[in-house]
Every structure is written in C-alpha cells, then in structure tokens.
Nucleic acid binder design. Structure first.
Length: 265
DNA sequence: CCAACGTCCTGCGTGC
DNA sequence: TGCACGCAGGACGTTG
C-alpha cells in the first residue's frame, strides 16, 4: 500500500526521466480510472516538474492542465521503454518521447485526476510530515479534543498528510506510544517523540526506496527494501525486537494495528 | 464540530 | 481439488 515513502520513491525515479519531456499520448484502458477531466488537455504538453503532496503526485505541465495521481491501495507507476503490451492491470499508459509510464492498479481504487492548474483541493490535506510545518504546537492543536486513538489520528490525512497503515504502526512503536491511547491524552513530551519518530521512520523508508508489501512495486520493477526493517507491522506473535514479548495485532477503525504491549504505553 | 460506518475494488488465504 | 467467504485498507460520503 503506497504511503509517503513509496510515492516519494516513485517521484525521485520518474522526475529526471519525464521532466522536460512531452506527453505524446495517453492510452486509457479503463475509463473510470480517469476521475476528472479529460486526457486530451494534457496530450502535447511538456512536463515541467513532479511534486508530491501527501500520497498524491502532481505532474506539472506547460499547459493549463495538470495531472494528479493517487495510488490508493494497489497502484504503482511502471516505467517502460519497450513497446511490449503491458499486463491486464495496467489501467492507463502515458506515452512520453523517451518512454512509457504505465499506471498499474489491481484493485482500481486509485486514479488519475486532470484539473485546471491550481484546482486540486490540496487545502484539505494536513501538513507535510517532513516539513517544518509539523510542530508540537500544530499537532497538539490538531489532537486536542480528539477522542479517537492516536493510531487512527495518524491515518487522518487532514492532520498529517502521507502516513498510512504500515508506517502508523511503525512510528508508534518507535516512540513507544500505545496505538490505543486517545489522541487528546498525549503529553507534550509524547507529541515531541511522535514527531521525531515520524521523521525518522519516513526518512529511513525513503532511503530504502520504500516498503514492498503485497501489490507495491517500484517503477523499475524492483522491490523497495524497507520491509526487512519493519519491527511490528504484520509481525503478530513474533518477538518484539526490543524485549522479546510477542507482537499483538488489533483492529482499529477496521484496520490492523500492531504493537508491543510491553514497550508501548 | 466529531465519530463511526459503508462503499469502492480484486486477489488471495482460509476452512470445509 | 474446488468453492464460498472474508480480509487487505485509503479516502470520501453519509449518518448520528
């Protein structure tokens, strides 16, 4: 499930390849994957940059339109320089002068939005976790009066943009906070630790090219390397790397959470 | 304002 | 071996 580190990994791979290149054509293989706008308005335009915001990628162009991609659960972007017909899960293909970018999505929950410049509702998203906007003051204000568990709050993109289910568990393990703790009950010290762990875990994951788990795959067809550094996610009943106690799985907001009950209070 | 739940979607693991 | 079922969960809309 692509989260901030996976999306950033794709951006870093694609940016030098498509910047300055013209979109020659877009082949739409599953119509409903184009969630807004029409591909005609970007065909013929040149990519001027790729920006990531949370889990969104924005492909900026020299025309009046720009293209947003959100991978949701099972999407990825594959870079290809052959004419070979892609597999059946490729829902759209963007043809550049120097290669093809395939949007591949098994479960088709993700999509592509084509909008007029500036029209994408980014204002709904919370702060970038790796920016200076994420401060103790900001997070304390956003968590105040929130009775939801801190794990569920970390998944709320209106608070912090980019954290998904895997990294939420990893971050809380790293700072020793129990995922069940009501968000509003975190002390200032805990919020400080939470922010430090958020930066640490996400940065390390980016440096490992993200986590490959189930569907996710990198643009070059290889796997991200961070899966082997996961300390709690998908490790139910396995020993905690710190104390040896068995890792516990619980369900919060219909999603799996993992924790060490001895290390996370 | 906040919280909880249904919805979308397909592959895969589980149990019989 | 085959089949039915439920799970995986990100974001958004609806309901309370």
């Amino acid at each position: 499930m692509p989260e901030l580190p996976e999306v950033e990994t794709l951006r870093l791979f694609l940016k030098p390849r498509v910047t300055g290149k013209r979109i020659q054509n877009v082949i739409v293989r599953l119509a409903r994957i184009i969630r807004s706008g029409g591909v005609d308005s970007v065909i013929g335009s040149k990519i001027t940059g790729i920006v990531r915001r949370g889990k969104h990628l924005k492909f900026e162009t020299d025309s009046e339109s720009e293209m947003f991609i959100h991978l949701r659960m099972s999407g990825t972007l594959l870079w290809s320089q052959s004419d070979e017909e892609p597999d059946k899960y490729v829902r759209a293909s963007v043809l550049y002068e120097n290669g093809v970018m395939h949007y591949r999505d098994i479960r088709t929950l993700g999509g592509i939005w084509i909008v007029n410049k500036g029209d994408f509702p980014f204002h709904r998203l919370g702060v970038e976790p790796l920016s200076f906007e994420l401060t103790v003051e900001y997070l304390a204000r956003m968590l105040a009066k929130r009775s939801i568990p801190i794990k569920v709050a970390l998944l709320d993109q209106k608070i912090i943009a980019g954290i998904g289910n895997i990294y939420a568990s990893e971050i809380l393990f790293d700072c020793g906070i129990n995922p069940r703790k009501p968000a509003k009950n975190l002390t200032e010290k805990e919020i400080e630790r939470l922010i430090a762990s958020t930066r640490k875990v996400l940065t390390a994951a980016i440096q490992s090219s993200g986590t490959t788990f189930r569907d996710f795959r990198l643009s070059n067809g290889k796997n991200g390397d961070f899966a082997r550094f996961l300390k709690v996610y998908d490790r139910r009943d396995k020993p905690c790397v710190l104390c040896g106690a068995p890792i516990v799985r619980l369900v919060q907001a219909k999603r799996s959470s993992y924790l060490c009950p001895a290390c996370q209070k």
